[in-house]
Design a protein around this nucleic acid. Structure first.
Lengths: 151, 151
DNA sequence: AAAATATTGTCTACTAGGAAACTAATTCAG
DNA sequence: CTGAATTAGTTTCCTAGTAGACAATATTTT
């Protein structure tokens, strides 16, 4: 069980108007969502997004990916090394800059991603939230603006 | 340095329309914001919110607080024990339910919170984002709906 | 009342993620 | 061209947070 559903009155005070606070809770909530419908894919949201972005940007360098996903290079190193060990991605050093490492999906990685794509798209289109479809669109648009992500 | 500001073209593909993905990035972005203006308070967003919520709800039980903040009880135990060790909160076992623990701010904790309140409110009112004030309000309102937080 | 069940906080062990120092390669200043 | 500064990835060490089992207490069932 997740706990009693009885409404425990907790006053949020000024936190209820803090964007950071609301975002943190929302993100945790959305992670729960992710697992309802995607749980048997054997992959966490973070890994999934890494795989997707490598798929969308073949040859992307580790550091660029890390900056885009706002995680530290040190952590990206660990993730992609693990994925390489799992046979999902390839890591090659390009001759024009031998410090860097280019990432690509292996055949197996591409296949795995293709498998997950269906459930993912279905999950995304489901909208199990309290928001109307229009509200959800607005929310996404505002977040993109906040993040400076252009369409 | 934060890294080269040169625009590295990274395609987000379907992730750009994933609420969970946008929320994760937004939350990380907002944490950076938190530290611009609050860095010298010697407290992370998580601890700050715990302190605030205890202040708003004197005598709140650990588990209730953990559920509200969507963190695990095990982790809450560590946080509040550390805060107790720092003299910021008191933890008392109420006679009517000797399994539970009630949390309150100590004098020192209340003083510390009072100190932070100014910078916090100022930070919250600043809006350093790309969003207009109206858009920011809308964003907060939609997140509250998503979270089922009523005013 | 007794027994089964649920809940609360805690413990141990583990995973996710960050900070800072380091190496190798590249670029920039002179 | 040479030395200084920067950048990319890695390594080590540390903190944040989770998973699951546990003891103590409370609640429900019989």
């Amino acid at each position: 069980m997740t706990g009693p559903t009885v409404t425990e009155e907790v006053k949020l005070g000024p936190m209820a108007d803090s964007l950071g606070f609301l975002l943190r809770l929302s993100q945790l909530e959305s992670f729960r969502d992710f697992y309802t419908g995607m749980e048997d894919l054997g992959m966490r949201p973070g890994e999934f997004s890494v795989l997707m972005l490598i798929g969308e940007n073949p040859g992307i360098r580790q550091g660029v990916l890390a900056r885009k996903l706002m995680i530290k290079r040190a952590h990206m190193t660990k993730m992609v090394q693990a994925m390489e060990a799992d046979g999902l991605v390839t890591r090659t050093v390009p001759p024009e800059d031998k410090r860097s490492i280019e990432l690509r999906l292996s055949e197996q990685g591409a296949a795995r991603l293709a498998h997950m794509r269906g459930p993912f798209e279905e999950h995304e289109s489901r909208n199990l939230s309290r928001l109307s479809d229009a509200e959800l669109d607005t929310l996404k648009r505002l977040l993109k603006t906040y993040l400076d992500v252009r369409e």
